[in-house]
Amino acid sequence: MRDLIEYIAKSLVDNPDQVAVKEVEGEKTTVYELRVGPGDLGKVIGKRGRTARSIRTILNAAATKAGKRAVLEILE
């Protein structure tokens, strides 16, 4: 799941080196903190949040397949 988020984010931003994904495992839900370099926040959020929403949708689909729950937080 971490690799999935990282791959998508790295493909979208200007500075792939500054993409980092932290995994915080909870009881039922795993939270993924996506961090991107300065100026790249808009690239992963998109117009009216469409990119972020799409990443979350894909993440949910992948998590469902794995029988888990995943939440994505985006930070700069």
Partner: peptide
């Protein structure tokens, strides 16, 4: 909706 999200992301990623 998952297919829509996939399509949108792929367009962005490939475009980038």
């Amino acid at each position: 909706q998952n297919l829509d999200a996939l399509t949108y992301l792929l367009k962005r990623m490939v475009g980038k």
